[in-house]
Amino acid sequence: MDREAIVGAALSLLNETGLDGLTVRRLAEHLNVKNPALYWHFSSKRALLDEMAQILQSRQDFGPPRDGESWQQWLTRRARERRQVLLSCRDAARLVAGTRAGPALIEKFEAELNALVAAGFTPAQALHAIGTITRYVNGFVLDEQAMAEHTADAPQPPATADVFAATPTLAAAIQEAGDSDAAFEEGVRVLVAGIAARRGAKA
């Protein structure tokens, strides 16, 4: 049993138990070993969670824009890919929140920053641009996954026609806004446009 096998098992167990149910004892039972065997590889549960977050995020296609891809197109693709990675694992948005990137992710992030600097961003502008998009995606998925958990635990009856009759603007907004995918795409468009406008204003 090595670190990679432990992290893989932990991510599998996370899908079953959720983040709140994931404990070192439970993981040890899942692997059919004693708790000390896991602490030989990870000094604490926090260290295990950090590596789980790094492995999960490494599934995203990090790196600079592809040939012929504008920075706007790249940031949009990056946002979509990150959302899909986070949605692929239960409580993934909570898992990655506040964790530190490992050397491999930092190296790829450096390449991304350099690509934006080459496109005319200052280093700080590049950092803020990627950070803003990343935090938006994390927060959006956090809400999606929390809502899914809430609905599974306590299904709510659909809103009645009487409720919408009293709130016609809300009813029209919901109908026009579309589903969660549409809401996500609109948010990304607004952010990317805002980043472009702010760059223009500072220039």
Rank of each mutant, 00 (worst) to 15 (best):
M1K: 10
A5M: 09
A5L: 09
A10P: 09
L11Q: 01
L14S: 06
T17C: 08
D20C: 06
T23G: 14
V24M: 15
R25M: 06
L27K: 12
H30M: 09
L31M: 15
N32D: 13
K34M: 15
K34P: 08
K34T: 14
K34A: 15
N35T: 14
L38V: 08
Y39Q: 14
Y39D: 14
W40G: 10
W40Q: 15
F42V: 09
F42H: 12
S43G: 14
S43A: 13
S44N: 08
K45D: 14
L48E: 05
E51Y: 07
A53I: 04
A53K: 03
Q54D: 14
Q54K: 11
S58H: 07
S58I: 01
S58V: 05
R59L: 05
R59D: 08
D61F: 07
D61A: 10
F62W: 15
G63Q: 12
P64A: 09
P65N: 05
D67Y: 07
D67K: 10
S70A: 13
R80K: 02
R80V: 09
E81F: 01
Q84I: 00
Q84P: 00
L87Q: 03
C89P: 00
D91F: 02
A92K: 00
A93T: 02
A93C: 00
A93D: 00
A97F: 12
A97R: 14
G98L: 05
A101D: 11
A104Y: 03
L105V: 11
E107M: 07
F109T: 13
F109R: 14
F109N: 10
E112Y: 03
L113D: 10
L116F: 03
L116H: 05
L116D: 09
A119V: 00
T122V: 01
T122I: 05
P123T: 01
A124H: 08
A126G: 09
A129R: 02
I130M: 13
I130D: 05
T132E: 06
T132S: 14
T132V: 09
T132D: 12
R135G: 02
N138A: 07
N138P: 00
G139V: 05
F140T: 03
F140Y: 02
L142T: 07
M147G: 12
M147P: 01
A148S: 13
A154D: 08
P157Y: 04
P157G: 04
P158A: 11
P158N: 04
P158M: 10
P158L: 13
A159P: 12
A159G: 15
T160A: 13
A161C: 06
V163M: 10
V163S: 07
V163L: 15
V163E: 14
F164L: 11
A165W: 11
T167C: 07
P168R: 09
P168S: 08
A171D: 03
I174V: 13
Q175N: 13
Q175A: 15
A177S: 12
G178F: 06
G178S: 03
D179F: 06
D179L: 08
D179N: 15
S180H: 04
D181L: 05
D181F: 07
D181Y: 03
A182E: 04
A183P: 01
A183E: 11
E185L: 08
E185T: 11
G187L: 07
V188D: 00
R189H: 14
A193L: 08
G194W: 02
I195T: 07
A196W: 01
A197M: 05
